[in-house]
């Protein structure tokens, strides 16, 4: 696969933009390259986060992997300024874990197979 590192970096970009749009002021990102996959973790104090929003994010991130869609549209990840591409992020990752408390914090952990 071409542009492997760039794709991971764009996923991080997408998540960061999403958190900033939720007016998070303290965001921690962790990216780890493991043997078989990349682990991306992001946590922020998303004060504007509602339960409805978080459940929507969970649903989007749980979009099944679609390599054929990824190949066509991956360059859109992290590009949007007004809307998010979390469904696309879901299509590019194999596992997602979301932990949140409304109006307090949101934590997302994603795994992308190599």
């Amino acid at each position: 696969m071409k542009h492997c590192k760039k794709r991971v970096s764009k996923i991080v970009d997408e998540l960061l933009t999403c958190f900033m749009n939720l007016h998070a002021t303290n965001i921690k990102i962790e990216l780890e390259e493991l043997e078989a996959c990349y682990m991306i973790s992001i946590k922020g104090n998303c004060k504007d986060l509602t339960e409805e929003m978080a459940e929507r994010f969970i649903r989007l991130l749980n979009t099944p992997m679609h390599q054929e869609l990824e190949e066509y549209y991956w360059e859109l990840t992290g590009e949007g300024d007004v809307d998010n591409e979390l469904a696309l992020v879901g299509m590019m990752t194999s596992r997602a874990a979301v932990n949140f408390l409304p109006n307090e914090y949101l934590e997302i952990q994603l795994y992308r197979d190599k």
């Binding site: 978080a54 969970i58 649903r59 749980n62 099944p64 879901g90 194999s94 596992r95 997602a96 874990a97 979301v98 932990n99 949140f100 408390l101 307090e104």
Partner: peptide, 12 residues
């Protein structure tokens, strides 16, 4: 109470 969702198969 915080909520945790794991994996890609638990969404209803």
């Amino acid at each position: 109470m915080n909520k945790i969702y794991q994996g890609k198969q638990k969404i209803e």
